[in-house]
Write a protein that binds this DNA or RNA. Sequence first.
DNA 1: ATCCTTGCAAAATATTTGCAGTATC
DNA 2: GATACTGCAAATATTTTGCAAGGAT
Lengths: 132, 132
Amino acid sequence: MKGENIKEAGLKVTLPRLQVLEFLEKNVGKHFSADELFTQIRISSSEIGLATIYRVLNQFEEAGLVIKHQFENGQAVYELDTGEHHDHMVDVESGEVKEFYDEEIEALQEKLAKKYGYELVDHSMVLYVKKL
Amino acid sequence: MKGENIKEAGLKVTLPRLQVLEFLEKNVGKHFSADELFTQIRISSSEIGLATIYRVLNQFEEAGLVIKHQFENGQAVYELDTGEHHDHMVDVESGEVKEFYDEEIEALQEKLAKKYGYELVDHSMVLYVKKL
DNA sequence: ATCCTTGCAAAATATTTGCAGTATC
DNA sequence: GATACTGCAAATATTTTGCAAGGAT
């Protein structure tokens, strides 16, 4: 169903919400700022307001539909939450974001938490990199 | 010497710069937003401008005297760069923050960046944990 | 004496909110 | 039809910049 997950979040299935969700679904693994989403959706179709984008993204985040990231550049970016954990690598020169998953790192983090007497609940790791 | 590291950064040793640096030196391991520094320095002494705080912090960051962190709340925070890198472990139940350093993780991050054709410039890692 | 630095105010960014009209259930 | 939602504009919040005055070497 098209707006099933929107409805499940207790939100009405409206055009702006569908547009935002569908755009993110078409671009899984990529990250967009509110302004980029605004521009993209404006280009491909109708009259959407930037404020609405922000409102919808906040509601989606609350509902667990999207993940919000605050990388080092001031602007927050959003991506669809596919439920599959991954970490991020940010090219500090181009701003490009790559996702990656490394079993060794994950295991090491578990081990580290235990070493300090904790259980690992969640983590975030961002590598800031530049091209060699 | 008091303003030695300021001078070494190619900056003139001025009152605002000394005040910011000394405040951070008195609070190693803690993090402050520009606004908090502004308020704190205003309370304890003289007429300093918020814009100056921002300028000084940017210069200090450039010079490697302070580290800037962009946490999840929009406001950037700064801490003195003691030269000792560390990551953070946050107890999700108590809110307590532990700093830690692990050679194996550091090496693995370098390796990972290389694997994707990048040079590691910086990284941030936060482990969210709870007591076992 | 020169050039850097400062504080203030205004500008630039990023995001949120008030409101009156509109669409969804 | 009631209520939630929207777009726009105005309001906030954070950080940067222009400028004239003040300070360091």
